[in-house]
């Protein structure tokens, strides 16, 4: 699995990183973000690319898993 650590980054950086990673077209990705806007924006991007999204939260860090 492709894991992207986008903690400490604000928008649009996490989406840019995700977009760059998803260019390789793999079946699953994971991204770590630590703010609400980044969680929502990366979710929107992944859905737009046709991925299913699941989210877990621990200690203010959201782990988003995208699968096709």
């Amino acid at each position: 699995m492709n894991i992207i650590d986008a903690r400490g980054l604000s928008c649009p950086e996490p989406v840019i990183l995700l977009r760059r990673a998803m260019a390789s077209g793999e079946a699953s990705y994971q991204i770590l973000v630590d703010n609400h806007a980044s969680r929502e924006n990366t979710t929107r991007y992944a859905q737009h690319q046709g991925y299913q999204v699941s989210v877990t939260e621990a200690g203010g860090v959201y782990t988003l898993t995208f699968t096709k």
Partner: peptide, 12 residues
């Protein structure tokens, strides 16, 4: 672009 998640934090 909004649909793709290019929303500024201010929108939220």
């Amino acid at each position: 672009l909004a649909d793709m998640g290019f929303l500024p934090a201010g929108a939220y």
